[in-house]
Amino acid sequence: MKKLIRVTVNDMEYEVAVKPNQTLVDMLRYDLGLTGTKNGCGEGDCGACTVILDGTPVSSCLVLAVQADGRAITTIEGVEGKDGLHPLQKAFIEKGAVQCGFCTPGMVLSAKSLLDENPGPSEEEIREGISGNLCRCTGYLQIIDAVKSVSK
C-alpha cells in the first residue's frame, strides 16, 4: 500500500505517494522527475545516486523513500544558486573534471558537503570525501584538482 510522505527537495515541498519498497533514488528520478540523481548500481557501491539528506551525503539507493518523510534533500538540481553555478560546478567545468558525466552529480554533492563542513580540506581529506563516488573515466585527479581549487 502506498504511503503519503512529505519531503522538501531543493527547498520545494512535495507530497508523494510512495510504495514501502521504493528507494529514494527511484522516487527522485521517476516520481519527481529529478533525473540528475543517477543510478549506477542500486547497491550502495558507486555513489552515482548521492544526495544530501538533512545535511549529510548518502547513497539514495540505500534509503527507502518512506524514510525521507519529513526530511530535507538536496539533489544536483538544487546546487546551482540564484547567482548561477556553484563554484564547485564551475571548477568541475574548468578543470576537465567531467567526462561521461554519469558520476558528476554525485561527485559534486559529495564535494559540496565536504566543503560545507570543512572549507579547507587537505588533499587526503578531499580524496576521503569523494571515496564513496566511483568514476571510471577521469582517474579522479582532475576532480580532486577542481575541489582543491575552490577550497579555502
Partner: peptide, 12 residues
C-alpha cells in the same frame, strides 16, 4: 571547456 560540461555539472 567541453561543450557538454555545463549540462553535466547541473545534472541536466
Amino acid at each position: 571547456v567541453r561543450v557538454d560540461a555545463s549540462d553535466k555539472v547541473r545534472g541536466r
